[in-house]
């Protein structure tokens, strides 16, 4: 038996390893036998020869051989995969075959709207806070200047859990909670879930979201109120979006306003979405009612402010052209997939 030094044998293995990385399918099969064949495989021979070596050498050679074995297995596995994928050099590669994908997920369109809205108000110095979904009459109504024995309370069809304890009908209770705990200047946006006793239909849901906003400081005026919401609308929709303020009524603001933006579908020329008015109502707002400030321990002679509330579901429906609010709660993969960014 010819004696070949282990170094030479290792060199042969490593040469073969180089060839292995580029080999086509038939050559790969041959090389596998050449390296690992049960009788004549180069590596097999090295391992078999171990017993003839001195202990010191045996250990070194054995370790090196084992490392090579691991590497060879890995290279063969990878090469076989590449060949299956048709990437062997010299063979006909169709570069138009699709690449390998991973699953992608998307945030919910309503979350996307909430994040965008809050981000714009963050630029105006608003922090993002939350509050409980279960509330009391006091926070949901009376502190907000909505007496329960006034028809204004009928604007909120309320789910009660027990007398005086209810599912909040708006995120406005967080106004009162915040004003009780913090001194002005206050600037907050409050996203969260709210509840109304409206059965599901194309435009109503018993559960939906709202974003409440509140700014209270010295010297806040109607002009600044309009400016902030105009800034929001122009950044959320587009810089040339026309914004319209109309008088309205909310018990917790005075003066109160509805804020309309130019219809995003027809750009103001009038269509079915905007009922031919060219405008879409996007939020209710106004200057904070002095009674609300008083109820929360803030002096209305010194401080003033504005508040607003909008429905992210409705805005998402406008933004994405979603015709039915129920789609937002069905979690249909065919729907959710469309919002992958």
């Amino acid at each position: 038996m010819a004696t070949v030094s282990p170094d030479d044998q290792f060199e042969a293995v490593e040469r073969t390893l180089v060839e292995l990385r580029e080999a086509g399918a038939p050559r790969l099969a041959e090389l596998k036998v050449e390296l690992l064949g049960r009788k004549q495989g180069l590596l097999t021979q090295i391992l078999r020869s171990l017993s003839t070596l001195e202990p010191e050498e045996r250990r070194a050679v054995g370790q090196r051989a084992n490392q090579l074995k691991v590497e060879i297995d890995a290279v063969i596995g990878q090469r076989e995969q590449e060949l299956r994928a048709g990437e062997s050099s010299g063979e006909d590669v169709d570069p138009t075959m699709p690449g390998r994908r991973s699953w992608r997920g998307a945030i919910h369109p309503v979350t996307a709207v909430i994040d965008d809205v809050c981000e714009i108000f963050r630029e105006l110095g608003f922090s993002r806070v939350t509050g409980p979904e279960v509330e009391t009459d006091a926070y949901n109504f009376t502190k907000l200047n909505i007496p329960l024995d006034h028809p204004a309370a009928d604007m909120h069809d309320t789910f009660y859990l027990s007398p005086g304890i209810l599912l909040r009908t708006h995120t406005s209770p967080v106004q009162a909670r915040t004003m009780e705990q913090h001194k002005p200047p206050i600037r907050i946006v409050v996203p969260g879930r709210v509840y109304r006793r409206d059965p599901f239909d194309a435009s109503h849901a018993p559960v939906f979201s709202q974003i409440e906003g509140l700014a209270v400081d010295e010297g806040i005026t109607f002009v600044e109120f309009k400016a902030a919401l105009d800034y929001f609308a122009k950044h959320f929709f587009s810089a040339d979006t026309e914004v319209r303020f109309r008088p309205s009524f909310f018990p917790f603001t005075e003066p109160s306003a509805e804020v309309d933006v130019q219809c995003q579908m027809c750009r103001g020329s009038g269509c079915a979405t905007c009922h031919r008015t060219g405008f879409l109502e996007i939020m209710g707002a106004g200057m904070v009612h002095p009674a609300v400030l008083e109820n929360c321990g803030i002096d209305p002679e010194r401080y003033s402010g504005y508040a607003f509330g909008m429905g992210p579901e409705r805005i998402a429906m406008l933004r994405y052209g979603i015709p039915d609010i129920r789609m937002l709660f069905q979690n249909d993969m065919r729907f959710l997939r469309q919002f992958v960014e």
């Binding site: 922090s127 993002r128 002005p184 400081d217 319209r244």
Partner: peptide, 27 residues
């Protein structure tokens, strides 16, 4: 509100004024 309503909300300018940072930390 009656004055603002009859004068027309659209007659008021939109002008952002300098603002003081909120004392309320984000949740």
């Amino acid at each position: 509100e009656e004055i603002a309503r009859l004068r027309g909300y659209d007659s008021f300018p939109t002008e952002l004024r300098p603002l003081r940072p909120s004392t309320v930390p984000s949740d």
